[in-house]
Amino acid sequence: MDQGLVIPALLVVVKVLLLLGAVLTFVAYATLLERRVLGFIQVRLGPNRVGPWGLLQPLADGAKLLLKEEVTVSQATKPVYLVAPLIVVVCALVPFGVIPFAKGLGLESILGPMADRFSLNTGVISDVNVGILLIFAISSLGAYGVLLGGWSSNNKYSLLGGVRAGAQMISYELALSLSVLGVLLLAGSLSLVDIVEAQDKVWKWYIFRQPLGFLLFLIAGAAEIGRTPFDLLECENELVAGYQTEYSSMKFGLFYLGEYAHLLFLSALVTTLFLGGWQGPILPPAVWFLGKMFLFAFFFIWVRGTYPRLRYDRVMKFGWKVLLPVGLFNVMVTALVYTIYLQHGG
């Protein structure tokens, strides 16, 4: 490697670490947000003892998880049992690298000519030209973590939870990718940076041009990450805690972290695909992005506080017999209208 590459490469590492730190902090506070909001929805207070408004609660939780006794059940298939939580966390965190959270970082004066190297000055770790495919690829690998965690515990509840999770993820991934196709058709690119830049006016936001796609994405996304009303992978009245049953201490903590990273990632993806990402007047782009992201995080928590859990067979039926056909219909109509528009006004 030649000398000119070393410093930019180091700076990229710094940038990645900063983003990772930010994401992990937001994930920690997403747990607090969930508990507080659920508390208010259920007319109780939620955690408010550690620090003002319970703001230090995530730290206390983290310390608790780290200090708990690490139990590895004797019947577990050890290597797989240990790797499963790691797969979940890695696959939940990696996709954040292709989400554009701001336009540019405004560091031209500091970085000088280095700014162009490795896209150091852009508000995204890596503008992959197949970004959305990368997200689907990584998230389909993430399903293995849950599946293997359930299997390797050698416990019937864990296995059932893992299998349910796997089946649900595979089924809803189809609906999820179909719901995005409309946006991709209109934007004409698989890169998330291009998709955000195509939404530079409010009326160009894809939530208005693809309302059906937006709804499908919200529903299929909630099912994909296993949020209520689709949280059958861990429904306590049937499966104890599903695939997490035999996990304790920080291994459980990793699953928990993966879950909330998924929640935030889904919110970030909805924001990027349908709400113009960081686009917005006056306020700095990153603020707009975070605001929209937490709006959706709040929405998913609100849904959890409002709706009961569905029955498993109905979830599967709904995915295959309702979401999938509607998604196909949406893609066909979008393609048709867009072609006519291109031939006449475009």
């Binding site: 030209n129 495919l133 990368l134 689907f136 389909s140 399903a143 599946l147 293997l148 299997w151 796997g166």
Partner: peptide, 26 residues
Amino acid sequence: AEFVAMVQLIVYAGAIMVLFLFVIML
């Protein structure tokens, strides 16, 4: 060939192997 790489991950590493794993687990 990024596109082919991603399709390789989604179709083979993701979808097909999950089904293998499913059958063997069950």
